[in-house]
Amino acid sequence: MSEYKSTGIIRKEDLEIPSDERLEEGPVVIMECVENIPCDPCVAACSFDAVEMEEITDTPDVEYETCTGCGFCVTECPGLAIFVVDCSYSDENCKITIPYEYIPVPDEGDEVKALDREGNEVQKAVVTNVRQSGKTYAVTIEVDKENVWKVRGFEVEK
């Protein structure tokens, strides 16, 4: 039994991730979707045909060399399980794009609490971009590079 089955928390080891070289090259998608569930909107969401799926219950197969990290799929995933990381941003910092469906919606430049996969605060982070698609937002925040695999959520301080 994988640990996430009893905890709901994905670990880096559970994921298929891009190579270190690809991560350094620029923004790329990280799909934290590891079960064989019947769902495929991410395939249609990609304008670059970087996501493949033979059966609807397959997990998404991402061609990382084709993925531009545009992040369009982030707001299209019903499971809110798609993130974009950009490790090429600077030497110390990286950017993470996170799907968001709560209120209030932050503005660019706001400081938010960056959270890990259990909702614990990891660090403070600055919002660098906010994109809306329907009622779902893709919010990009800037965090320390060492936290790139830790941070997967954020909280707007009220």
Binding site: T7, G8, V34, E35, C77, G79, A81, R117, E118, N120
Partner: peptide, 11 residues
């Protein structure tokens, strides 16, 4: 798992 992860992220 995706639903569980989403709610865990919220603490």
């Amino acid at each position: 798992q995706v639903h569980a992860s989403k709610i865990r992220r919220a603490g």
